[in-house]
Simulated scan of single mutants.
Amino acid sequence: MTLQRIEHRAMHGGWQDVHEHASSSLGCTMRFAVYLPPQAATQKLPVLYWLSGLTCTEQNFITKAGAQRYAAEHGVILVAPDTSPRGDDVADADGYDLGKGAGFYVNATQAPWAAHYRMYDYLVDELPALIEANFPVTDARGISGHSMGGHGALTIALKNPGRYRSVSAFSPIVAPSQVPWGEKAFGAYLGDDREAWKQYDAVELIRNASERLPLLVDQGDADEFLQTQLKPTLLQAAADAAGHPLTLRLQPGYDHSYYFIASFIGEHIAHHAKALTT
């Protein structure tokens, strides 16, 4: 699979790049960002996948989070894909919470979305294969994300035991089947059968998870979406009932923004680095 590098910038002794490629899963051209810390010049390193939230592209995380400094410190490669398929032929909708920029990391089954919206397959199979074929990575993988991307990180890790050594999330949509963002997206992408929604719902998945991969979740208590869209207490209740290890930290004064992510991303990368290098 041919990659075209379209951005290449020195940062913290390494390189912040953006690549473009034709995606077979999504049937369109996709972009992803990859940060190669200085250690990558001489050795293979573990990789941390970052999934962004609604309206984002690959750019938000790499320009706002300040994660590269910590990735260079710990020797971790960062990969940040786009949040949905892109292109003139890709279905879209009015509003920010459905369509382009709002792929929700699922495989859509309903028209017109099913033609391109297969972000789950892209992230679980196609993108890692691409990364492992073209960059100096080991088989140690972690996954993290924010909001819609936090939902994606949790569900992908829970659905794929043994694939990831670490998982974390900022302000995740933990129970999309029970909140307006998820109900709108899942109804469109997956149809009216709510049983089909459970395969992409962290609260549902944790109940029968076959692997007890510890979850680290940070949530701001001043988040404007806390009570209506995020509801982390539902994840805590499900984890307690299932005996699943969860560290849920309610951070006082923080909102839903990248100011919040930038404040704690160093702790998250340290958390992943510990799991990925032991």
Rank of each mutant, 00 (worst) to 15 (best):
H146F: 06
I6G: 07
D121N: 15
E211K: 03
A238G: 07
Y122N: 05
P180T: 13
E183A: 12
L78D: 10
Q39D: 06
L190G: 04
H268P: 00
A275L: 07
D121Q: 13
G14S: 02
E58V: 09
R31I: 03
L130P: 00
Y96S: 14
T42L: 04
F225R: 09
I173C: 05
L230C: 03
Q16F: 02
W197S: 06
G220A: 02
G99T: 04
T29Q: 10
L158R: 11
G182N: 02
H272N: 09
T29F: 01
H151P: 00
Q39K: 13
A242L: 10
D125R: 12
D192E: 14
T57F: 13
Y258D: 01
C28M: 01
R194W: 05
S52F: 03
Y189I: 10
M11D: 12
H244P: 02
D121P: 07
V18L: 05
W113G: 01
A65M: 11
K100S: 01
G162Q: 04
A133P: 00
W15H: 14
A185M: 03
Q236M: 08
Y258A: 10
L54I: 15
H12D: 11
V18F: 00
A10N: 06
A188I: 00
A242H: 07
G75Y: 11
H146E: 13
L123S: 07
L248F: 08
G253L: 09
D92V: 06
S168G: 05
R86L: 13
Y49V: 06
Y70M: 07
A157R: 14
D92H: 08
A209I: 07
E132I: 03
A241D: 06
A241H: 11
A238C: 02
G266A: 14
A22Y: 01
P136V: 09
Q251I: 15
S25T: 05
A71D: 08
P232T: 06
A153S: 14
I261V: 13
S171C: 14
A129W: 02
D192R: 10
K44N: 13
F260R: 09
L78T: 08
N60R: 07
Q16K: 14
S84Q: 00
D94M: 11
D193Y: 13
S25Y: 05
P38R: 14
S171H: 10
S25K: 08
L123N: 06
F225M: 12
A175C: 14
L215M: 15
A65D: 07
Q39L: 10
F32V: 03
A270L: 09
V34I: 15
I261Y: 03
R9D: 04
H74V: 09
L230K: 07
D255L: 02
A41Q: 15
Y96A: 15
G145F: 06
N208V: 12
G152H: 02
I62M: 15
G14W: 04
Y254G: 02
A188Q: 06
I62E: 06
A157F: 12
A41L: 06
T42A: 15
G142Q: 13
L205I: 12
H12N: 10
E267N: 15
Q219T: 00
L246Y: 08
H268Y: 06
Y200K: 03
E204S: 15
T109R: 03
Q43H: 08
